[in-house]
Simulated assay, not measured.
Amino acid sequence: MQTPKAILFDLDGTLADTAPDLAAAVNVMRVRRNLPPAPYEQLRPYASAGARGLIGAGFNVAPTDPIYEAMRVEFLDQYASAIADQSCLFEEVPGLLSGIDQLLLPWGIITNKAMRFTDALVPLLDLKQARCIISGDTTPHAKPHPAPLYEAARQLGIDAAHCWYVGDDLRDIQAAKAAGMHSIAAAWGYCGATEPAHWEADLILHSPLELLDIVRAKHLKTSSS
């Protein structure tokens, strides 16, 4: 892997542990329907899959079902009403971002969250210093399409081939490969229904600071050569 000129991150499950608030929105809906709350452990793996994944996990309802769209709107409205009650950055993420800043590397966020939610959540998580923030509706396509990743590279003025993209979902790795970016699976995140070992990512890492160690080593090697 080439030394990165920029590092781009997924948001949910990569930089931020947002699953508690996403799961809470599902369980508010379940209580309204006289259903018991679903166990958090059941819902957490689907947090990076958005409304589609969480409604599927909480209600066994698929996007093709007639009731799905109404449930999706209800879920998103409920989530928006309590978007950061429990969400926070993963423990090592502040140290990772501080270390990247010390290397004078630009970093940004690419998420499938709609701007409605990204713009509300990012300031509450103290991620305003991101050099670019690409939401699921910033471009005509969301991940796994490469368009959001190309847009991030364009905004940074850096060729996509010189960017690393870090995410905790198969779609993140697929998008990175389609955009020609180096792909890094964030195994500390939610990871969905499949194991990162099956994603064919360029790297699988188990902690944010592991990523920082690799980036520092790459930059040290480049500066000394």
Rank of each mutant, 00 (worst) to 15 (best):
26 V>S: 00
137 D>G: 09
40 Y>K: 06
103 L>Y: 06
154 R>V: 09
209 L>I: 13
202 D>W: 10
112 N>A: 12
13 G>V: 04
174 Q>M: 13
79 Y>R: 02
3 T>L: 04
104 L>H: 15
34 N>M: 06
103 L>W: 07
153 A>P: 06
144 P>N: 12
122 V>Y: 08
163 C>S: 11
179 A>T: 10
94 P>H: 09
146 P>N: 09
11 L>K: 06
165 Y>M: 12
157 G>E: 06
72 R>G: 03
190 Y>F: 15
181 M>D: 03
136 G>P: 03
109 I>R: 08
178 A>C: 11
49 A>V: 00
207 S>C: 05
162 H>I: 02
43 L>Y: 01
39 P>Y: 00
12 D>K: 02
31 V>P: 00
135 S>W: 00
92 E>M: 11
201 A>F: 05
117 F>I: 13
66 P>A: 11
125 L>R: 12
149 L>C: 13
164 W>P: 03
5 K>Y: 09
223 S>N: 15
40 Y>H: 13
206 H>G: 12
11 L>H: 07
111 T>K: 07
25 A>P: 04
171 R>Q: 14
207 S>V: 02
36 P>V: 12
217 A>V: 05
98 S>P: 00
157 G>M: 09
60 N>Q: 14
18 T>S: 15
69 E>G: 02
116 R>D: 09
133 I>V: 15
214 I>Y: 08
180 G>K: 07
4 P>Y: 06
80 A>M: 12
78 Q>V: 14
106 P>Q: 08
111 T>V: 10
55 I>S: 01
163 C>W: 11
97 L>C: 11
157 G>D: 05
165 Y>R: 10
54 L>M: 13
167 G>F: 07
48 S>L: 03
162 H>P: 00
61 V>D: 02
82 A>N: 13
198 H>Q: 15
142 A>E: 12
203 L>Q: 14
145 H>K: 07
48 S>W: 01
176 A>S: 13
111 T>N: 08
213 D>I: 10
10 D>I: 04
71 M>Q: 11
200 E>P: 00
196 P>Y: 08
179 A>F: 12
203 L>V: 08
71 M>F: 05
212 L>K: 11
40 Y>M: 13
47 A>D: 04
218 K>Y: 13
73 V>K: 12
